[in-house]
Amino acid sequence: MSKALVKTNFNFPGQKNVYHGKVRDVYNINDDLLVMVATDRISAFDVVLPKGIPFKGQVLNQIAAQFLNATAHIVPNWLIATPDPMVTVGLLCEGFRVEMIIRAYLTGSAWREYKKGARTLCGVQLPEGMKENQKFPTPIITPTTKADEGHDENISKEEIIAQGLVSKEDYEQLEKYTYALFERGSKMAKEKGLILVDTKYEFGKKDGKIYLIDEIHTPDSSRYFYAEGYKENFEKGLPQKQLSKEFVRQWLIEHNFMGEPGQQVPEMTEEYVNSVSERYIELYEHIVGKPFEKANSEHLNERIEKNVKAFLATYQR
C-alpha cells in the first residue's frame, strides 16, 4: 500500500515557526516566505479523520499550482515555486480573517439551510421555490469567518465591515477578485466538461498589496458537477454526479457522523482509504485534463526536506 504523509516536523534554514492546520503544515521562513506542505490528512465537518489518503496532498498541491498560474493575470498571488509535488513555497502575507465563498448553485450546506426554511444566507436574500442543485440567477458570495480551530461561521458583508475584520475598501476589492476568479475557474471547468458549483478563496496582504493565498479550485475547496447529465438529473430530482470532497461527507453522514459532540468517526478500512485515494486521482485527471503521475511515496519526509532545502539554498528575491 502506498504511504500517506500525515505528520511533518521539519526544521528548515531560517525557520521561525510552524503552523499545523487541518490539512496543511505551514512553515514560516524568515517572516518572508511560507513553505506550505499539503499533507495527506483529510478533514470533514472541521474534523481531521484518523487516516491519511495516499497522494491526496500531491493532487491538491498540483491542482492549486495550475490554477494559481492560470489566474495570476487576474489577481497577484503568493506562489513562488513548487519544489516538491506536495509543497508550495510563496510569499508570507497577513491573511484576512474571512474566507470568500462563492456559490453558483444551491447545494451542500446552503441547501441544508434552505431546506430548513432559511431564505437569507450571509445577508444575501435567496429566491423562494428553489430546488436542490438549482442554479442561482447570478453567483452569490457567502463569506465565513476564518477560525483557527473549530467551525468557521457564516457572516455578512455588513458584519465583516462593522466588526473591522476587513475595511470597506479592501472588502469591495476582495469581492471583485472573487467574481473574476470564479468566472475564470468556471470557464476552465467548462472546457473539461465540468461545472464549477462553488468554491472558496482566501486573501492576504503584504506591503499594502492584496494577494490571493492558499489553494484554489481544488476538490477540497471547491465543488464540481459533471456538465453532462446535469439538466436531466436536476429535472428528475436525482443527485448530481460530482467531483468534490462531498462523497466523503456523504459517507460520514451515512455512518451517523457530522462532527457533533459524542459522535464517533466510522472505521476507515484500507479498502475505503484506497477508494478515496482513487477518487482524488480521478478528480485530478478530470480537472487538469491529463494523467496523474504518482510521485514516489517512499520516505516522503526525507524527499520533501531535501527538495525544500535545495530550493531555499538557491532562492533570491
Rank of each mutant, 00 (worst) to 15 (best):
S2D: 14
S2W: 12
A4R: 01
A4G: 00
L5Q: 03
V6T: 15
V6N: 06
Q15V: 06
Y19G: 00
K22Y: 07
V26Q: 11
L34E: 08
R41L: 06
S43H: 01
D46Q: 04
I53V: 12
P54Y: 03
Q58M: 08
L60D: 01
T71E: 00
I74M: 06
N77L: 11
N77Y: 08
W78N: 14
W78M: 14
T88C: 13
V89L: 08
L91T: 10
R97W: 11
E99R: 09
M100S: 15
L106G: 09
R112K: 15
R112Y: 11
Y114M: 05
Y114W: 05
K115F: 12
A118T: 12
L121E: 01
G123Q: 03
M130H: 09
K131C: 10
K135Y: 08
T138E: 15
P139S: 06
I140D: 09
K146L: 01
E149C: 03
G150I: 01
G150M: 03
G150F: 02
H151A: 09
N154F: 09
I155K: 00
I161C: 06
A162P: 00
Q163N: 13
L165K: 14
V166N: 02
S167A: 07
S167G: 10
S167F: 05
K168R: 15
E169Q: 13
Y171L: 15
E172Q: 14
Q173I: 13
Q173V: 14
K176F: 11
Y177K: 10
Y177M: 11
Y179M: 12
L181G: 07
R184K: 15
R184D: 05
R184T: 14
S186D: 11
S186Q: 11
K187L: 13
A189T: 07
A189L: 05
G193L: 05
K200W: 07
Y201V: 12
Y201G: 03
F203L: 11
D207A: 15
D207V: 12
I210D: 05
I210V: 13
Y211C: 05
I213D: 08
T218N: 08
P219S: 09
S221W: 04
S221T: 09
R223D: 08
R223A: 02
Y224K: 00
F225T: 01
E228T: 12
E228K: 15
Y230W: 10
E235G: 01
K236S: 06
G237I: 05
P239M: 00
Q240E: 02
K241E: 11
S244F: 01
S244I: 05
F247G: 02
R249D: 10
E254Y: 04
H255A: 06
N256H: 14
F257M: 03
M258Y: 12
M258L: 11
G259H: 04
P261G: 02
P266G: 01
E267V: 15
E271P: 10
Y272V: 14
V273K: 03
V273A: 04
N274P: 00
S275Y: 02
E278G: 01
R279W: 04
Y280N: 07
E282R: 10
L283K: 00
L283N: 15
Y284Q: 02
Y284F: 15
H286L: 06
G289C: 08
K290F: 09
F292P: 01
K294C: 07
K294E: 11
N296H: 07
L300V: 13
N301T: 13
N301W: 00
E302M: 02
R303K: 14
R303N: 12
K306V: 12
V308G: 02
K309Q: 13
F311V: 02
T314M: 14
